[in-house]
Write a protein that binds this DNA or RNA. Structure first.
Length: 470
RNA sequence: GGUAAUAUAGCCAAGUGGUAAGGCAACGGUCUGCAAAACCGUCAUCGCCGGUUCGACUCCGGUUAUUACCUCCA
């Protein structure tokens, strides 16, 4: 039984899929006007973990996400660089795919761009106008927020308050275009020949920000979604508006479980351009040699909690991940002389830790608790490695359990699979001989040589072991 | 101002009405030719003040601090 915290009810609710063993989930993707930052990566990772765990639990998950490729920020960026909007969008959409790959973020089942669904958007907006939920005004089309019963409940905002705030913010011109300050644009008129636009019943223009997600989720999934996710800042206005539009059009509940991930702060401050602490994933990957540590770091805090990113917290993550990797490799090393058979006591313990892991993940994807079970397994792996006799089936079960759980976090490559050079191999062989002859001076010298070549050597009861130093 | 969230050891981070998981770091020990890895052990009374209770860190009230959202930022 999986429980999920629903932003709408502010409670953990028992998860029940609309169709048994199938999950339709939609996660808001980035606006492709720049490289994604570490916060975008966190969001993508959080929902990648949700997806992986649901699949582990036997659900067939259809995961739809978007690229917002038409929007003010893209238009501005294009103007700055003197290129057209699609050049910008294509560049950063490609960069998204390239940068999320080393973090092991699985591609969406469907990744759609706003510009690919323009006809659907226009139809959607027309429906809203027909139903009286939207109105045209000077080429723009606005949604009548107040006509939608329950507007703002997702973000738990007070309607009158929002209205007053919005009124204070808008200029006179905007006020005259809108019937009410809290109305939001579903279609925006084009004001310049140069900017990208499409022909519509209301003249040339482009979609409002929120409409694409409503359209795509309905087009690629269904009227009612099992799960809709995104950053907590999207609860208002983005998801609030999506919900209003979608439910206004279909008359059906839009989303069963609203999930929102917490922010990534940098050195305890909100990441923002004005503070100069805006860290793109692109730069981070270029300056850090272990992407799996980044993945581990971002995946192992509970998704609703904020993460504080600093060089110190990242290094701590690396140390913790190294403990898991080492335990895994320690056991893998013993596989060579493992004997046929199994140890039922050990296997019972393994199974208990796996159950604990599942129990933690079932509780709103409590990754820190789940991780504790992984560490229990690692300790078990290490103590088992120290035994005189290791049984093959049991060792395999341990290895498999650890890699499966880490795989749910999206952390792969626990074993060191890189090859040795001929030089490294011969040095290692020479060192084995030196040690057999108790020539420790030579063996220490060879160990230093190997270290300089990036190989660390350890002596164990069952022989010499090496690994690549990172 | 409104609405929320958070406050647990040097750091990160769980958790529960009955006296605090896990990890990093540190220290002591075992093992080792040395080392490494590993193992064993040590290391907090849960922001502050009240209240409820046989008993609270866990519930209630207040208070302080930090953070977020309040129209386009994940």
């Amino acid at each position: 039984m999986i429980r999920i915290y629903n932003t709408l009810s502010r409670e953990k609710e028992i998860f029940k899929a609309i169709t048994p063993k199938k999950v339709n989930m939609y996660v808001c993707g980035p606006t492709v006007y720049n490289y994604i930052h570490i916060g975008n990566a966190r969001s993508a990772i959080a929902f990648d973990v949700v997806r992986r765990y649901l699949e582990y639990r036997g659900y067939d998950v259809k995961y739809v996400s978007n690229f917002t490729d038409v929007d003010d920020k893209i238009i501005n960026r294009a103007r700055e660089e003197g290129v057209d909007e699609m050049t910008i969008a294509n560049k950063y959409a490609t960069a998204f795919d390239e940068d999320t790959l080393p973090l092991n973020i699985r591609p969406a089942s469907v990744r759609s761009r706003a510009t690919e669904v323009i006809p659907d958007i226009i139809t959607f907006v027309q429906d809203l106008v027909t139903k009286g939920y939207a109105y045209e005004s000077q080429g723009d089309v606005y949604f009548r927020a107040k006509k939608f019963h329950g507007y703002g409940i997702l973000a738990h905002q007070d309607l009158a308050e929002m209205e007053a705030n919005a009124a204070g913010r808008l200029n006179d011109e905007e006020m005259t275009r809108k019937e009410d300050p809290i109305d939001f644009a579903v279609w925006k008129a084009s004001h310049s020949e140069e900017e990208i636009s499409w022909q519509s019943p209301w003249g040339k223009g482009r979609p409002g920000w929120h409409i694409e997600c409503s359209v795509m989720s309905q087009k690629y999934l269904a009227n009612t979604l099992d799960i809709h996710g995104g950053g907590i800042d999207l609860a208002f206005p983005h998801h609030t508006n999506e919900m209003a539009q979608s439910e206004a059009r279909t008359g059906q509940k839009f989303v069963n479980y609203w999930m929102h991930n917490g922010f990534v702060n940098v050195n305890n401050e909100k990441m923002s351009k004005s503070l100069g602490n805006f860290t793109t994933l692109h730069d981070m990957l270029a300056n850090y040699d272990d992407p799996m540590t980044i993945r581990y770091f971002l995946a192992t805090t509970q998704y609703r909690r904020p993460i504080n990113y600093s060089s110190e917290t990242l290094e701590q993550a690396r140390g913790a991940l190294d403990r898991i990797r080492t335990g895994y490799r320690n056991l893998l090393f013993r596989m060579d002389n493992a004997v046929v058979g199994s140890d039922s006591t050990i296997e019972d313990e393994i199974k208990q830790h796996v159950r604990d892991f599942e129990f933690a993940m079932d509780d709103d994807f409590n990754t820190p608790n789940a991780l504790a079970s992984v560490f229990e397994l690692v300790t078990l792996a290490n103590t088992y490695t120290d035994e005189n006799e290791v049984k093959k089936a049991t060792a395999e079960l341990l290895l498999e359990s650890i890699s499966t759980m880490m795989g749910i976090f999206g952390v792969d490559g626990l074993a060191d699979r890189s090859e040795l050079t001929t030089e490294q191999k011969s040095l290692l062989e020479a060192r084995v001989v030196a040690r057999q002859m108790h020539n420790f001076e030579l063996s220490d010298q060879l160990r230093n040589q190997l270290r300089d070549l990036g190989i660390s050597v350890e002596d164990t009861a069952t022989g010499q072991r090496w690994k690549h130093e990172r």
